[in-house]
């Protein structure tokens, strides 16, 4: 409860800063827009050549894309500092600041900076999902809506958890961004149907770096193609990975306590 209140306060302060820096806000928002436009264009280009991608239409692939963007936006908005914990906090010694305060250092790190670039991703993801699902004439029911909401939230958790697990390497090598990137880039696969890939990669995207749970399986459910439990697995997988990440984070913290860098 106390942490929720604190997060709210951090968030409001951050918001004031954005409003103050209108230009930076606009640049951030438009760069998000251009990046997303590039991503969408890539899909359009692929689908123009192969209008039917192993039984997936352009609009169906767009749905996958939108779901990934939506889930990722939570990581971008709320946990972006995990990317830079080494470069911005450990290297400069600012990490010490978290350790002399009476709150959880991981919470402090995450709350320290709400990233407004994520808002653009959220909106674009939302628009793409709505647009594609409209043209797909999905027969919505409560289960399907629930599946989409859980996929976005649970998917966000998967994104954050994987970044948490990889960012812990910062306690050993300081700059953890390349490690995080190496894992994070797997989410690109989830913008296309997993049936495209070899069974090993499909398994990896389901159980190891489970970005497939963010888009592919929930989409199968919503499109009425499959009703595997995997469509609802992302919140559980996300929480499991979070627990692993938090355990590793504590190992990293212990190491920081003995080396101080």
């Amino acid at each position: 409860m106390r942490y929720l209140e604190l997060y709210g306060l951090f968030f409001v302060q951050r918001l004031k800063v954005f409003l103050e820096y209108r230009l930076s806000f606009l640049i951030g928002a438009s760069s998000t827009f251009f990046m997303q436009a590039g991503g969408l264009f890539a899909i359009w280009a692929v689908m123009r050549v192969t209008p039917n991608l192993l039984g997936w239409s352009f609009d169906q692939v767009l749905l996958l894309y939108g779901m990934v963007a939506l889930a990722r936006s939570f990581e971008l908005m709320f946990a972006n500092n995990l990317w830079v914990v080494g470069q911005h906090y450990i290297r400069s010694g600012d990490f010490d600041r978290f350790l002399v305060r009476p709150i959880n250092p991981l919470f402090h790190l995450i709350a320290d900076r709400f990233n407004h670039d994520g808002i653009g991703n959220f909106l674009i993801g939302l628009v793409v999902v709505i647009r594609s699902s409209l043209s797909l004439n999905i027969d919505w029911n409560l289960e399907k809506v629930l599946c989409m909401v859980l996929a976005a939230l649970g998917g966000g958790l998967v994104f954050i958890a994987l970044n948490l697990i990889t960012c812990v390497s910062a306690f050993w090598i300081v700059d953890s961004a390349p490690v995080t990137l190496a894992v994070h880039e797997w989410h690109e696969f989830a913008k296309y149907p997993l049936s495209m890939y070899s069974s090993q990669i499909k398994t990896a995207l389901t159980f190891v770096v489970p970005y497939g749970l963010v888009s592919y399986y929930p989409a199968l459910f919503v499109l009425g193609r499959d009703s595997s439990f995997l469509a609802f697995a992302s919140p559980f997988m996300g929480m499991g990975l979070m627990l692993i990440g938090y355990a590793l984070w504590n190992v990293g913290l212990r190491r920081y306590g003995s080396t101080g860098s």
Partner: peptide, 28 residues
């Protein structure tokens, strides 16, 4: 305890001092 680390700041770079102090107060 309270700690001042030389030239490193424990305040938020972009926030006005009053806001920064208020956040610190809430943390404690």
């Amino acid at each position: 305890i309270g700690v001042v680390f030389g030239q490193r700041t424990q305040l938020w770079w972009d926030l006005a001092l009053r806001e920064s102090l208020w956040l610190v107060a809430k943390i404690y």
